[in-house]
Design a protein around this nucleic acid. Structure first.
Length: 497
DNA sequence: ATGATCTTTAGCATG
DNA sequence: CATGCTCCAAGATCAT
């Protein structure tokens, strides 16, 4: 039954892949073209917000295969005369030719991919690798597994101890919103295309950003790098398609997991200098997450509504649940209890689960939050008391109470359209505020207690809509926002406040 | 019910 | 500054 279904999916997909062989090969070219174009990267300095330089000759070569590919795959048929006419087909054929004899289908490397091979920059990435290895060493618990939940909690409290009030008093954060500033030197166009995920390395003495885009690139931006050559920006191309998730475990900083729509999860290991292949499947992987107390298990959405748990120690997926009727957009764990998991889905529901008591046949959620439209995120607050959901129905939902029994809906315009990545409200450094982009090139700061937007970050330096965010876990006030044009903005707390 | 097609939309490159 | 291209989101509408 289930397996039959799977084989159907697989067959269909394999067939598509076969038909798309040329396109896949062309994607290899994309990687190469990106490499080539990356040589121009150095021309744009960090503060330049206007253009990500790509050489004009290569541009069509990069773009064309994507168009073809999508068209074939989405419709399951050869390109029609309408938009994809002979010019394009020809150009693909031309590009395709020299590549085929060498390595057919080489764009999908089913094994470890050296960082060197994946690196698209022209300068050296040595500084980055050394930095990452150094950070990993400092974290000290690189190999440890199953860190007790208690330490997580302590850690969270420590984070907020300095600048943000510690407990109770949910409405009274010490974070001065008016002190959040966007300094031009903290703006960079770090990669081409649309950024789908952005993350700070969870390290208290570094300011390192990792981001992934729709083209399968992963970029590192070291804001502390005074490096002359590369501006602290290092671009890789480890995946053939959109990056759906980035996960860096707080106790395992030199190892970075990335997932991709093409059904692949890789682990970038700075010490081994590879993007290791961790997992691959024939279904789309829409989201990726890890429990805060376990660096060895990966939780990810596989296909439509499926949640898989992969254990690196055994190398297989002991668990596959069908939790939703449509794609799961986010997976998050309660910082106060890592057995409590929240999923958000395009099926219009966000669910809170207890991992210890999920019935594989009939999974029953502890709590279901319903929206009228697709839900794009569901994140627990830093102390795990509330859940923030963001939906296409133009609401940010705040669900709280001892059993998450109360939900209040706060209106927020979330019609991002097709070209902007969907909005996802994230929590700041305590339970006081939630941050979410708006369509007017600003960042709305919502107070769950006041049930309204209480502040909006604006800046003349923001030339695009920030749609994906991350808050630096150790650095209060440091907020990264990423755009659909490859830019990253990093707000910081004004000195002396 | 299920599937195919259409529409919306912002950012960036180009000339 | 106008125009064209992007083209794996999601809901609405139309078709089977």
């Amino acid at each position: 039954m289930e397996t039959q279904k799977l084989t159907d999916y697989e067959r269909k997909r394999l067939e598509n892949i076969r038909r798309n062989d040329e396109m896949v090969a062309a994607l290899k070219l994309q990687a190469m073209a990106t490499q080539l174009s990356a040589s121009t990267k150095r021309q744009s300095n960090r503060a330049a917000t206007k253009s990500y330089k790509t050489s004009p000759q290569k541009k069509p070569k990069i773009e064309t295969p994507i168009v073809m590919r999508r068209s074939l795959r989405t419709r399951g048929m050869p390109p029609e005369a309408k938009g994809l006419d002979d010019d394009l087909v020809e150009s693909v054929a031309k590009i395709h030719k020299p590549l085929t004899p060498a390595k057919p289908g080489a764009s999908r490397v089913w094994g470890p991919l050296n960082m060197e091979e994946a690196y698209t920059g022209s300068g050296s990435d040595r500084e980055l690798i050394e930095t990452l290895v150094g950070i990993g060493k400092n974290s000290g618990v690189d190999t440890s597994v199953g860190v007790e939940f208690g330490s997580v909690k302590v850690c969270k409290d420590e984070i907020s101890g300095n600048l943000v009030k510690r407990e109770g008093n949910d409405g009274g954060s010490c974070l001065k919103l008016s002190s959040l500033t966007l300094n031009p030197e903290n703006i960079a166009r770090v990669m081409p295309g649309r950024i789908m995920a952005v993350r700070f390395l969870p390290c208290n003495n570094s300011r390192m950003i990792v981001a992934g885009n729709k083209l399968g690139n992963i970029v590192f931006w070291n804001l502390d790098s005074k490096g002359e050559g590369e501006d602290g920006i290092y671009l890789y191309h480890p995946h053939p398609g959109p990056i759906s998730g980035i996960s860096v475990h707080q106790h395992c900083l030199s190892k970075i997991f990335t997932s991709c729509y093409e059904g692949v999860i890789r682990l970038m290991d700075a010490e081994k200098e590879v993007f290791d292949l961790v997992y691959s499947c024939e279904d789309t992987i829409f989201s990726l997450s890890q429990q805060p107390n376990n660096a060895n298990c990966l939780y990810f959405c596989e296909g439509y509504g499926g949640l898989s748990i992969f254990d690196r120690r055994t190398g297989n997926c002991p668990t596959k649940w069908s939790l939703h009727d449509a794609r799961i957009n986010t997976i998050d764990f309660n910082p106060g209890n890592p057995n409590i998991m929240a999923t958000s889905s395009t099926d219009g529901t966000a669910c809170i689960w207890d991992l210890r008591s999920i019935n594989a046949d009939k999974p029953k959620a502890l709590k279901t939050v319903s929206h009228k439209r697709a839900i794009h995120s569901a994140y627990f607050s830093p102390y795990g008391r509330s859940l923030a959901t963001t939906s296409y129905d133009d609401n940010v939902g705040i669900t709280s109470g001892v059993n998450f029994e109360e939900t209040s809906m706060i209106h927020h315009y979330n019609q991002t359209g097709r070209w902007i990545s969907t909005f996802r409200a994230i929590w700041g450094w305590d339970e006081s505020y939630v941050f979410i982009g708006n369509m007017k090139r600003g960042v709305d700061i919502i107070s769950p207690v006041q049930r309204r937007s209480v502040f909006t970050l604006h800046s003349p330096h923001m030339s695009a809509i920030p749609c994906r965010f991350d808050a630096h876990p150790y650095n209060v006030g440091m907020l990264a926002g990423a755009t659909s044009g490859g830019q990253v903005y990093v707000w910081t707390l004004l000195q002396g406040s």
